[in-house]
């Protein structure tokens, strides 16, 4: 029995199959961009509608957006600190919104009804490229935050509180993006797989609580990703005394 075939086509799942788009001599995963464009387009439309007519007494959508803004500000402020959180709030908020919209969009919209020639539509965050891209952006951000705020003194962080920490701190720079990307990727992919497998095996009632659990996990993952990103930036700009 072909084990690879079994895994990749189990429950009619197309794990690790992609819709390839060829641009010049580079190839990209089309299904990731398709879903991300649909979801981000919806997000931008939603936000444009909510901020079209801003009033001092918030109504309807504006209320929701202000709540969201306040939530993101609190997240950024508690992790990054009062001094520089304003500079990083849009980035942290974008990470949160992107991951949240991708996760929930992947879980809530019945993408499987749309047939693609190869692969299938799903949460953009279930693709390793997306999560690595996000995690690398976070890495670049905290380096930039540290260097722009403290200059070369940023590297004092590596020998703080003792030089013994140096190898561990250097190792951390690699484990941070690794853990960020794989946690998000693993959780979302696993959630999609569990739901698909359960739908295939028991197409009644049973998948529903798992779907709800999936929604919960998706929201939590978005929060974790944004919080950790903010924490890393906060750690980089923190002043040691």
């Amino acid at each position: 029995m072909n084990l690879s075939y079994f895994f990749t086509n189990f429950a009619e799942l197309e794990v690790g199959q992609h819709l390839y788009w060829q641009i010049g001599n580079i190839s990209i995963h089309g299904q990731v961009f398709l879903t991300s464009w649909i979801l981000l387009g919806a997000l931008l439309v939603f936000i444009s509608l909510g901020t079209k007519k801003m009033e001092n007494d918030p109504k309807g959508l504006q209320n929701l957006l202000e709540f969201l803004w306040d939530y993101i500000r609190d997240l950024a402020r508690t992790q990054i600190g009062e001094k520089v959180y304003r500079d990083w709030m849009p980035f942290i908020g974008t990470l949160f919104l992107f991951v949240f919209v991708s996760n929930w969009g992947g879980a809530l919209i019945p993408w499987r009804l749309i047939k693609l020639p190869s692969g299938e539509l799903g949460a953009p965050t279930a693709d390793i490229n997306t999560t690595i891209a996000l995690a690398l952006l976070v890495s670049l951000s905290y380096f930039y935050a540290g260097l722009s705020n403290k200059g070369w003194r940023y590297f004092e962080y590596y020998v703080h509180p003792t030089p013994i920490m140096l190898p561990f701190k250097i190792l951390e720079d690699f484990t941070k993006p690794l853990s960020l990307s794989f946690r998000l990727f693993g959780n979302i992919l696993a959630d999609e797989l569990v739901v698909s497998v359960l739908v295939f095996l028991v197409p009644l009632v049973l998948p529903i609580p798992v779907m709800f659990l999936g929604l919960f996990t998706s929201a939590i993952q978005a929060l974790i990703f944004a919080t950790l990103a903010a924490y890393y930036i906060g750690e980089a700009v923190e002043e040691h005394h």
Binding site: I28, F33, I128, T130, A133
Partner: peptide, 15 residues
């Protein structure tokens, strides 16, 4: 599953 290609930088630019 771990097919890393040009999707990565393009997604980063998109973000």
């Amino acid at each position: 599953l771990f097919d890393i290609n040009a999707t990565l930088p393009l997604m980063a630019i998109q973000v």
